[in-house]
Design a protein around this nucleic acid. Structure first.
Lengths: 203, 203
DNA sequence: GATGGCATGTAAAGGGTTACATGATTAG
DNA sequence: CTAATCATGTAACCCTTTACATGCCATC
């Protein structure tokens, strides 16, 4: 049986490039360096994708080799030099092709939910502690997203902004992030209170 | 040069076995075969983790070798034989250790959000189509979860069930899944309508 | 005799996480 | 002098995904 293999193309034919399109989408907003992207994709800030710096530097290199982004060196005297990247026409075409293909719903995979699933047979105390901590983290993200939303829409009301601005994509994804974290917060607080009421723990 | 390392190492012999604990948590509810687990972890059913059958068979083999679960052969005459697995005391201890370690928030990684992020520079029509399709999928999952919740609580009201049952973990995670899908549905519908209003498309 | 559900895997490729590594400049 | 921020990577390992593979039984 001859194994049919794809020549592991560095070029554009790939089907499931995960990070690739997220980076392209962010770079549509403007020029960024790997370091700046790392902050945008940081777990405590990202509203639609998460990645660590190492991933981003590797992906930027691949994207540049594939001609989907172009980098330019920026000499700085007060700090280390950096390279800023922009999306090329080929990169925009790649994004358009990506958006035309039906996407699969993302997997839910959350360690905290695994713990809650098993909580009937475990000591609830550490689970309660983690739920309460997570509720706090979620609340902080809600506030962060609210600040980001205010900044994005400037002086306009949300309604006006969404009707007239030509850059609403980041606003819409930020709104989704806000809703998710708000739900997360409410659920964590509610479950923590419930578990506390059932099996009171000191502290 | 001796180790110059960050003080942020968590210390606990940190292997990040991802699926492992999810499987253990589900097997706490009772005996299941790989095939049955595959249905529970299926994308269209799972409320807190998602995995394909191949992953599960591999993980079950590893868990059994590690002594965290025990399998027993069940001879069937009307259909192929199967192996049912249960959690061993060592497996329960592993879960308890897992629950005691602070968990990190899960990454948000959603192709559809990447498309919305970039929608200002793309043809909105396919994005709108996908948002509407996703809203329908989310609505179906909400209904599925509602049926599951009713089944889990039986004749009891939710309040009574949550106060008195000794198996509320699966119910709580299912509630989280329901909330997530409901949010998803509302956001997708809202964004689709907004994009339609801004750039009317035929159809 | 074809389809569909039950039941269990192997192999290869792709993507993500962790650990390790380097070096500049500014603020305290 | 120390820490923090800026800036960029490499390497190894682990996890996930996709494709391939097998075989039984019941029903239509």
């Amino acid at each position: 049986m001859p194994a049919r293999r794809h020549p592991s193309s560095l070029g554009v034919g790939g089907l499931t490039m995960a990070l690739r399109h997220a980076v392209l989408a962010v770079l549509l907003d403007g020029e960024y360096s790997g370091y700046q992207l790392a902050k945008i994709f940081d777990v405590s800030f990202s509203n639609f994708w998460y990645a660590v710096p190492q991933q981003l530097y590797a992906e930027l290199a691949k994207l540049e080799r594939a001609g989907l982004i172009a980098g330019r060196q920026v000499i700085q005297h007060d700090r280390p030099n950096k390279r800023l990247f922009t999306v090329t026409p080929a990169g925009l075409a790649e994004l358009a092709a990506f958006a035309a293909v039906p996407s699969k719903p993302s997997s839910i995979r959350e360690d905290l939910l695994v713990m809650v699933q098993a909580v009937d047979r475990l000591d609830p105390a550490p689970v309660i502690a983690q739920l309460e901590e997570r509720a706090g983290i979620a609340a902080a993200k809600v506030e962060l997203f609210d600040r980001t939303l205010r900044q994005l829409r400037g002086d306009l009301t949300e309604e006006t902004f969404l009707r007239e601005s030509d850059q609403i994509g980041p606003y819409l994804t930020c709104l989704r992030g806000r809703r998710f974290e708000q739900e997360n917060r409410e659920w964590c607080e509610w479950v923590a209170a419930l578990l506390r009421a059932r099996a009171p723990v000191p502290g």
